[in-house]
């Protein structure tokens, strides 16, 4: 019987501890929301006619970082350890623009925009690179990138730079192949004949996020 009482008491103490622990744990996350202005996506590729570039300025989504997440290079944080972070990114395909007449439609069509209107990314793991130097802190990330209906795990080195008390800039670039995501490099018959697009592209991002005053709402203006 005594044993039973002890068990119940232990369970109650545990439950109480858990009850307090849950909000304490939630408070350790700092949410950053994508800003409407200031982000950049660039996709660089080649073709038989000339090299080409596609630009976008819309990167939606959010980032939640543990309050202990290292952001200050001066603090010389230790590398390698896995960090607590949640990141989800959306890039509308139709926000990617070439500046060339009719080429946008060619690109969107190749990327099956009507079926899959967004490029989506979700972070799986992130760790600080050791010996990152004096610049913005550099990280190794692993995440799932979904393009044209195919999701693939990608590794990408990123830097996270604190711009001020509220804003962070995330920078990264990644060489990839269109065919990895089932995208057939377009060969449009435009203007002066058939153009063949190369399979290799380089994707670069600059993502501006700011602390959300309310996690349920977008952050205030820059």
């Amino acid at each position: 019987m005594k044993q039973t009482h002890l068990t119940i008491r232990t369970a109650l103490i545990g439950l109480a501890a858990l009850t307090f622990a849950i909000p304490a744990s939630a408070q350790t996350w700092v949410r950053y929301q994508a800003r409407p202005i200031g982000s950049k996506v660039k996709i660089e590729g080649t073709s038989t006619l000339h090299d080409w570039t596609v630009d976008g300025k819309l990167i939606g989504g959010f980032m939640e970082l543990d309050s202990n997440f290292p952001l200050d290079p001066a603090a010389k944080p230790a590398g390698n350890a896995k960090l607590n972070a949640k990141v989800e990114v959306n890039i509308p395909l139709t926000s990617l623009l070439s500046g060339k007449k009719l080429m946008d439609e060619v690109m969107w069509d190749a990327m099956k925009q009507r079926q899959y209107p967004q490029i989506q990314y979700k972070l799986k793991e992130i760790s600080l690179k050791p010996n990152a130097g004096s610049g913005p802190l550099q990280f190794d990330s692993v995440g799932e990138l979904a393009v044209s209906g195919l999701a693939k795990t990608i590794n990408m080195a990123v830097t996270i730079e604190r711009l001020d008390q509220n804003r962070l800039k995330v920078t990264g670039s990644l060489p990839m192949k269109m065919t990895t995501f089932g995208i057939k490099p377009p060969s449009p018959n435009i203007g002066l004949g058939l153009i063949k697009t190369g399979d290799d592209v380089k994707v670069s991002i600059e993502w501006l996020v700011a602390k959300a005053t309310d996690a349920s709402k977008p952050a205030e203006k820059n």
């Binding site: 994508a34 409407p36 202005i37 300025k57 939606g60 139709t94």
Partner: peptide, 28 residues
């Protein structure tokens, strides 16, 4: 497309939308 993409991600922030359209739509 531009208005839909923007508002889906950032809501009804007209000032920012105007800036976004000026930056992107003019070019494309």
């Amino acid at each position: 497309n531009a208005v839909t993409d923007f508002t889906a991600n950032f809501g009804n922030d007209d000032d920012a939308l105007k800036e976004y359209l000026a930056e992107t739509f003019t070019k494309s």
